[in-house]
Amino acid sequence: MFKIESNVDNLIPRLDRMDQQIHSNLERVVEDLKGQLVDNVKAKTPVRTGALRASVTGEVRSGSTGVTAEVGANPTGSDSKGSRRSFYAIWVEYGAKIPPHKIVPSVAKVLAFQAGGKTVFAKAVLTKPAILKAQQPIHGAFKEMRKQILSDLRNAVDSAL
């Protein structure tokens, strides 16, 4: 219930308190939703080495204009939360057409890998073209949580009114 009194001197402080309560509620709810979304994205992220899953993070920012959360994978591995190998996060999310390309050793003089149960050594390897299907761990998790996110945000505002 929202009550407007004719005494403006009384109304302004009440509206200020309401604004502070809404902001506080939103900070709490957005932080909780961010944690749930990060967990859901990680659960949907395919795993081979674990680098991409380990790079999934979230951050909440609160300011005078509102509260925002950002969830994603660290595509460059530019800090300790990610890995240089997780640059392909965008390929996993949206899919990709990868043309043939040459792989050469960056540190050693030759590449070493397993093929047909045998260890193979090569100075360079030409890959085959590949098509990666979009798996959408981020968009998929968000779509699944969309109704809950909207409901929790509405409840955070409604409870302060």
Rank of each mutant, 00 (worst) to 15 (best):
D79L: 04
V60I: 14
A130F: 03
V120A: 04
W91R: 15
L126H: 05
T68D: 07
R146Q: 08
A96E: 12
N74H: 07
A89D: 04
P129V: 02
H101W: 10
P129A: 12
S86N: 11
S64A: 07
I149S: 05
H139A: 11
G77I: 01
G77S: 05
T68A: 13
P129Q: 04
V125P: 00
A115F: 13
T76M: 13
K128E: 05
S55P: 09
P105I: 08
A69M: 10
A51S: 13
K133R: 11
G58Q: 08
E93M: 11
R146I: 06
V56L: 01
V125S: 00
K102V: 13
E59P: 03
G82V: 14
V104K: 07
L126G: 03
A108W: 01
E59C: 13
H101I: 08
A51G: 11
A73W: 02
P100E: 15
Q135E: 14
V67K: 00
G77A: 03
T119M: 15
L111T: 02
K81Y: 05
K97C: 00
R61P: 00
R154A: 10
I138N: 07
A141Q: 01
V110Y: 03
V60R: 11
V60F: 15
A96T: 08
Q135P: 05
A89Q: 03
F121A: 14
A141V: 01
S78P: 05
G63C: 09
L153M: 08
R61S: 15
A141F: 01
D152E: 07
Q114M: 09
G82R: 06
K109I: 00
S151K: 08
F121K: 11
R53K: 15
G63D: 09
I90A: 13
A134E: 06
F113H: 09
S106R: 11
V110E: 05
A54F: 12
V67Y: 02
Y94T: 09
A54H: 07
P100V: 15
D152N: 09
I103M: 12
R53S: 12
R146T: 07
G72A: 09
R146F: 02
G72R: 00
P137H: 11
D79K: 14
G58Y: 03
V56Q: 00
R146N: 08
G66D: 11
F142E: 02
A130T: 02
G140M: 04
I138C: 09
H139K: 13
S80N: 12
A130I: 01
P75A: 13
T127L: 04
D152F: 03
R154T: 06
K109S: 07
L52N: 01
F87L: 12
G95Q: 10
L132Q: 03
